[in-house]
Design a protein around this nucleic acid. Structure first.
Length: 152
DNA sequence: GCCAACGTTGGC
DNA sequence: GCCAACGTTGGC
């Protein structure tokens, strides 16, 4: 059974359009342990809701899928990277990233305001007070609800 | 740009 | 191991 997840990205840094152009990208740069643990649980074929944060209006803007299970993230070893982590070693990597593949960009994005108005989504991690997790699981019911809201 | 909420760091 | 200070996130 595929699992469902939501991944956040600041579109000024990396948008759904960037993913559409690249098609596949390593989901690197996550530096939060809970989010990392979720990334490590992802399996090829899992479905990903792509969320744009910080941009007016914040919204779920499309779908992606896991192309490759998480592996040690290269940036943690690269001194010149902003994600360099001197505590990480090749023997004991600290951070992991899956490869993510573009699936579709919604013709109508689902803004956070509409998500909040939906009863089915009342427990969605994204909507919890002060939620800052950038990777989170989504139930199949929540996933289907959001897909319907996007007109799919 | 503001600011509340949160995770991390580091002194003790 | 506590907790204050700090930096970051993210909605508005």
């Amino acid at each position: 059974m595929p699992q469902y997840w939501l991944i956040k990205s600041d579109p000024d840094t990396y948008s759904i359009d960037d993913l559409k152009r690249e098609m596949v990208t390593p989901w690197s740069g996550v530096r939060n342990y809970q989010a990392r643990n979720y990334l490590r649980r992802m399996r090829p074929g899992d479905a990903l809701l792509f969320y744009h944060s910080s941009a007016g209006p914040a919204a779920i803007v499309g779908l992606a899928t896991v192309a490759k299970a998480a592996y040690p993230e290269p940036d943690q070893f690269r001194k010149e990277s902003k994600y360099f982590d001197e505590t990480a070693t090749k023997e004991k990597p600290r951070w992991f990233c899956p490869d993510v593949r573009f699936v579709e960009k919604f013709s109508q994005a689902v803004p956070i305001e509409k998500l909040r108005a939906e009863k089915t989504l009342k427990n969605l991690e994204l909507l919890k007070r002060g939620s800052r997790l950038s990777v989170m699981p989504v139930s199949s019911q929540e996933f289907e609800c959001i897909r319907k809201m996007a007109g799919r």
